[in-house]
């Protein structure tokens, strides 16, 4: 695949909840195989942007181009089927279902053969989940639940994986494991849009970064440019 080819291209996007606008004139792009970091303080609109991308909110203006097709306002199931998959903030696994059922739901829209192949591949990657396949997902530790949430998203055969604050509430050791996993997925060719509070670690992985502030893009560029800009560092990152 051509690395320069944009998977996702957002232009002039506005969105929010009902009449309350939150995002204004958002422009963002992700190319095949790259990690893009999306940063911003609490309430800047990161989660709103992701929910809009995934079809959970309908944008009020602008376009979301996915593989050259405008998907603004499309249903979340068609967006997932097209390969744009998110791991929602706070994991949101299904605690009463078994680990295996959680995983299989990630491939809900695929045929049986594809489901089984995906399950096998995911269990090979996360042997721990294989060991606990029949356990209720709610009995897993926080770190395992996050791995399950990511594994479940991988079951949907993503071309772009959106991770919304995946390190939230994890132990420092688990955060390291998580970033190792993200870089591994990246090396294997998956494009990732990473929303994170762990700024330093995210920027170390990302090839480009965006900073959201009060619902608008305040910065876009390379991590080096972002770190070089004192103002941005002070204002948004606290590093």
């Amino acid at each position: 695949m051509n690395r320069a080819e944009p998977l996702l291209e957002i232009n002039g996007l506005a969105s929010g909840y009902g009449p309350i606008g939150i995002l204004r004139a958002i422009t963002l792009s992700v190319r095949a195989g790259e990690i893009v970091a999306l940063l911003g303080s609490n309430g800047a609109g990161k989660s709103t942007l992701i929910r809009t991308l995934c079809g959970l909110l309908t944008p009020s203006a602008g376009s979301i181009c996915w593989l050259g097709r405008d998907i603004a306002g499309a249903s979340s199931q068609s967006i997932v089927a097209a390969g744009l998959v998110q791991v929602p903030e706070g994991r949101r696994i299904f605690p009463n279902l078994s680990v295996q059922d959680n995983l299989l739901l990630g491939s809900y829209r695929r045929g049986r053969a594809a489901r089984q192949a995906n399950l096998a591949a995911v269990i090979e990657r996360f042997p721990r989940l294989g060991e606990r396949a029949r356990q209720a997902a709610g009995t897993l530790s926080g770190g395992e639940q996050q791995m399950l949430a990511i594994a479940r998203a991988l079951m949907a055969e993503p071309r772009l994986l959106i991770l919304d604050e995946p390190s939230l509430g994890l132990s420092p050791k688990m955060v390291d494991t998580l970033f190792e996993l993200i870089s591994q997925l990246h090396r294997q060719g998956l494009a990732i849009l990473l929303v994170e509070q762990h700024v330093a670690q995210s920027l170390a992985l990302a090839s480009r970064a965006y900073v959201l502030e009060n619902g608008a893009m305040a910065f876009s560029g390379t991590p080096a440019q972002l770190l070089a800009s004192d103002q941005l560092r002070r204002a948004y990152l606290g590093v």
């Binding site: 995906n118 591949a121 042997p127 991988l154 949907a156 071309r159 494991t177 190792e180 294997q188």
Partner: peptide
């Protein structure tokens, strides 16, 4: 945890 390098499902397809 993610020690085993496996193909991502997108490629496993």
């Amino acid at each position: 945890m993610p020690e085993h390098a496996a193909l991502p499902p997108a490629m496993a397809r």
